[in-house]
């Protein structure tokens, strides 16, 4: 239900933004109808057995994580740019490796993998239930990630959504 309301709110907000008409009854009605319809389809696409991980607590914790993520992105951007312009002093040392994933819900696994990819210097290539294959531009970037700070930050999002580190359930996702 939370997923449905969230999806509906985002879709209807997007409709309002793109149309720009806030007082036309017909347009608002059409937007309402199509948003409800698409949100219904989207909810049907979720598999009912698998807990998808959406919770109100997570939504409240999300802004803090986003701030942390933006800071991480800025830092790694500076690092990659330095390696572009100063190849002699700051050589690239590409690394490919696997790292453990401690998140329980598929949503938080996805957030973790997406965060890895969003920070330049590290790319998540494949994600399974228990680990993620990462390609890093430098050994330092890989070591940073292996240090597990980002893993902990993402895991903090789902604290309270269930028991931490229980047996991994559900299917892996890419």
């Amino acid at each position: 239900m939370l997923y449905f309301s969230l999806l509906f709110a985002v879709l209807f907000g997007f409709w309002l933004l793109l149309s720009g008409f806030w007082d036309n009854g017909l347009l608002l009605g059409l937007g309402l109808a199509s948003s409800l319809f698409v949100a219904w389809i989207g909810t049907r696409l979720q598999s009912p057995e698998q807990e998808n991980g959406y919770s109100l607590g997570m939504l409240l914790r999300l802004p803090r994580y986003l701030v942390w993520l933006v800071v991480a992105i800025v830092k790694s951007n500076i690092d990659v740019v330095r390696r572009v312009w100063d190849p002699l002093n700051q050589p690239i040392t590409p690394v490919m490796g696997r790292l453990p994933v401690s998140q329980r819900t598929s949503l938080c696994k996805t957030i973790y993998a997406n965060s890895i990819t969003l920070t330049p210097g590290t790319v998540a290539i494949e994600v399974s239930d228990t680990d993620v294959q990462v390609h890093a531009l430098t050994r330092d970037a890989f070591a940073d990630l292996a240090g597990g700070e980002m893993d902990r930050e993402v895991s903090r999002l789902e604290v309270g959504a269930g028991h931490r580190r229980s047996s991994p359930n559900g299917k892996g996702q890419a």
Binding site: N77, V80, V81, V84, I92, P94, M96, T117, L118, T119, P120, G121, T122, V123, H135, L137
Partner: peptide, 9 residues
């Protein structure tokens, strides 16, 4: 793969 990181910037 390294170009992928540059494109990420």
């Amino acid at each position: 793969y390294t170009r992928l990181h540059a494109a990420g910037v």
